[in-house]
Structures are given as C-alpha cells and as structure tokens.
C-alpha cells in the first residue's frame, strides 16, 4: 500500500488516476483504520458485495487493472502483483511515464476465475444483515465458502468475521491463516 501511495503522486502529475478498491463485506468500518494506520491518502473505494470479483473474474487479491481514457481495459493482473516488489513498482512507474505496458505484461497473471453470479446477491443479503442486525452473516459467509472453497475473498472474510482478533488487532496473523490452510480448515 505505501508503494502504491508513492506512485499516486507521480501519476497525478500525468493526469492519471490511481485508486484503491478494498474488497470488504463489512464495509468502511473495517477499511478506515487500515487507511489511517498506514497514512493512505489515495482515493479508496470499497466493494462490499464482490461486484468487482464477478466483473473482472477474480477470487483473490491483490490485483491490478489499467484502463485507457475511454475506460477500455488495457491490462489485468490477477494475484502475482506486488507493488512492494521493486521490479513491479518500476513497471508501473514505466507505464505512468511512457504509457508502455510491455514490462507489466511480463508479470504472470493468474488465470481469471469467475465467482458464481448469485454470489453478489447473497453478499447483498449479508450487507443487509450487518446493517439491520437481523440474520446470521457468519453462516451466510460459511455457506459461500462451502460452495466456493477456492474463493479466497470469501474465505478470508469468513475468517475475519469469526476471528476479528487475528485481523484487526494490529498485525494480521498470517501464521494462523497458513495453519488453517495446511490443516484444511474452513
């Protein structure tokens, strides 16, 4: 995130917009503390119902998409993009400076993987549950993980809502996540 932040200033000088989209079913309440902690000033939007995952075909993050002025999609990298990696940062910088996507195209994207169409509506039901307090959002997410076990956007959010202390109390406990995966636990 700090790496992306530093590119935004350079991009703004070239009239290019760099924005963040956070995939978070639980909404701004969970995203804002992270932005504050890391001093993120770039425009950030939140996808609460996985519309972007359905539209662009991804079940993981982070991902990078680049559009032309008429919103034609010119570049899509699913996972495998790490803006903290110097090589990747330089490739994005090169695009900002020259418009050339060649070095970005050398990053191996994972293949597109489209979630079920109905997943967006299910998550919207979940958004209403969170808003009204009526219903079981945890069970809803559990069902989504059962139906789509390879969808790490659903899986990690299921973990986060059930184990907030592993996600929202300072550093994210990635060892805990790794053990869950190794033990094939939901």
């Amino acid at each position: 995130m700090p790496g992306w932040q530093s590119l935004a200033q350079k991009a703004a000088e070239k009239n290019i917009e760099l924005i963040n989209v956070s995939l978070d079913f639980q909404g701004p309440e969970k995203v804002i503390p992270y932005l504050d902690e890391y001093g993120v000033k770039i425009k950030t939007f939140i996808d609460v119902d996985n519309s972007s995952g359905l539209l662009f075909g991804f079940k993981v993050v982070p991902n990078l998409l680049i559009f032309d002025e008429d919103l034609t999609l010119k570049f899509k990298c699913i996972a495998n993009i790490n803006i903290l990696k110097n090589e990747h940062k330089l490739s994005v910088e090169n695009w900002i400076d020259t418009g050339d996507l060649e070095s970005l195209n050398n990053i191996n994207s994972k293949p597109a993987n489209i979630p079920a169409i109905e997943s967006v509506n299910v998550l919207r039901e979940g958004n209403k549950i969170l808003e009204t307090g009526q219903g079981d959002a945890k069970q809803l997410l559990k069902n989504m993980v059962t139906d789509d076990p390879e969808n790490f956007i659903f899986r990690k959010q299921y973990w986060a809502i059930n184990n907030p202390e592993k996600f929202y109390s300072g550093k994210i406990d990635t060892d805990w996540q790794r053990k869950k995966l190794e033990n094939n636990e939901d």
Binding site: M1, I16, E17, V21, L65
Partner: peptide, 8 residues
C-alpha cells in the same frame, strides 16, 4: 487513464 489496485 485509470489504474485500480484491488486489495483487502
């Protein structure tokens, strides 16, 4: 021109 970084 627009670049979107999806994260969580």
């Amino acid at each position: 021109k627009l670049a979107i970084y999806f994260w969580a």
